[in-house]
Design a protein around this nucleic acid. Structure first.
Length: 423
DNA sequence: TCTGGGGTCCTAGGACCC
DNA sequence: TCTGGGGTCCTAGGACCC
């Protein structure tokens, strides 16, 4: 049996841990730039505020119901996530961290204690240790565990815990669940399935397997098998190495000058390099993109992207920022209003096993130790005094910024912020 | 005025190999 | 008139996840 543990309204719950006055009130957390809703309390959901809805379209409801609004505070949420995962890791023999607020647990062998009692203990322990409320779904496959979790959240009668013990319980749950709510079935597949009379999860489970394989491909076939109790998605106990690392942002206001865009891209490249070192990897490919708002008139839209291969794979901020700056020079076209840009690192390889790339015409030394030592010093200073304390000169936040008008303090990751909230 | 960010996997098709 | 079989690698685009 697998358990899916999912934090309730996670970002809102994080804000409430440190600001209990938010309990019982409608609360929303906004995306970067304060654009869309990315988390809503139950009270906010009841007001009809939709996931992903742009805040400006709901200004009237937000004002009328005095909804508490927070800008996204990802350092806080990431740290709270670690606390939840550390707690869960001690409560089961195997765990797969699936997302910032979800983990699958191996429930093998807990049948004798009683799954229900054990799951109740998990919920109480996480709540007591971290302040975060969680819901749990338990079933014979991961896909059914996701479905059970959804039941646990949807229907208050379950009180945050739903266990599907056997086929008849699974079939009853699937009959009550729309096919669009099945894990792995997105908007396009839902549209296709509905047109063909498949509207519930149970319809999908019972559809002809060849037909599912043909139209929903191998991933859809796995979903169907899992709904029928055949486990084909094992628990991934170790996180696979990342294949790419990306940092991108939309801007608080449009950018038209190349120099300003260069500053932003330098900042994104430096952030990427920091993440890269955190993963212990080197990158061999740097991709940069810059684009206008997708809501522009067609003639004013532009999407530029280009990649450059690095002669020597590296995790050095200076090399990566330099490469990214050169690529931006290639794709920048004057006359457009740029709304968003980003840097993507690819061809990742572990640092330890890195050999100098074979180059035919250029005699390339292995990466000098000086670079490694400089990066160590850079990271040590920034870790001690805050990210951005020491940075590359082109990475200046002079001409671009994001909107973050209602940011809560970084309660768990910044001493300065804690001092600031002292009464 | 105002619409997020960071990922993965799969397929189809082209180009190439012997 | 007749035109194989078995592969790899790469890329773009689509679909999905939170």
């Amino acid at each position: 049996m697998y358990a899916l543990v999912d934090c309730n309204n996670f970002y809102v719950s994080c804000e409430r841990v440190f600001n209990p006055a938010l309990n019982g009130r409608p609360v929303v957390v906004l995306s970067n730039n304060d654009g869309c809703f990315i988390a809503r309390s139950n009270e906010a959901k009841a007001l009809g505020l939709p996931m992903g809805g742009p805040a400006f379209k709901f200004r009237e409801i937000l004002n009328r119901h005095k909804v508490a609004i927070h800008s996204a505070n990802f350092p806080l949420y990431g740290d709270m996530s670690s606390r939840v995962m550390n707690t869960l890791g001690g409560l089961a023999p195997g765990m797969e961290i699936y997302s910032i607020d979800e983990a699958f647990l191996d429930m093998e062998g807990f049948g004798s204690i009683g799954l229900e009692a054990y799951a109740g203990m998990i919920r109480r322990t996480v709540r007591r240790s971290t302040g975060i409320p969680v819901s749990i779904g338990i079933a014979p496959t991961k896909t059914l565990a996701k479905l059970a979790n959804r039941m646990a959240k949807k229907d208050p009668l379950f009180e945050g815990l739903c266990i599907l013990n056997d086929e008849s319980e699974a079939r009853a749950a699937m009959a009550a669940m729309g096919v669009e709510d099945v894990w792995g079935i997105g908007r396009r597949h839902t549209e296709f399935l509905n047109l063909n009379g498949v509207t519930t999860a149970l319809d999908l489970a019972d559809a002809p397997t060849q037909w599912v394989r043909r139209h929903l491909h191998i991933t859809g076939a796995r979903v169907q098998a899992e709904l029928n109790g055949l486990s084909c998605l094992p628990l991934e106990l170790v996180r696979p190495a990342k294949q790419s690392i990306c940092t991108s942002r939309s801007f608080g206001s449009d950018i038209t000058e190349q120099a300003v865009l260069e500053q932003a891209v330098a900042n994104f490249a430096a952030k990427c390099a920091l993440k890269l070192r955190g993963e212990g990897e080197t990158a061999g490919l740097v991709t940069v993109f810059a684009c206008t708002s997708p809501f522009e008139e067609r003639a004013d839209r532009y999407w530029g992207t280009r990649s450059v291969a690095l002669r020597v794979p590296t995790q050095d901020t200076l090399s990566i920022v330099k490469a990214a700056g050169a690529v931006l020079g290639d794709i920048f076209k004057p006359g457009f209003r740029y709304r968003k840009a980003g840097v993507i690192l690819g061809d990742l390889a572990p640092l330890a096993g890195t050999l100098p790339a074979l180059t035919l015409f250029v005699q390339e030394e292995p990466e000098p130790t000086a670079s490694t030592r400089l990066m160590e010093a850079l990271d040590a200073v920034n870790s001690r005094y805050g990210q951005g304390t020491l940075r590359i000169a082109s990475d200046v936040k002079a001409g671009w910024k994001q909107r973050q008008e209602r940011l809560s303090p970084h309660y768990t990751t910044s001493w300065d912020d804690i001092i600031e909230i002292r009464p």
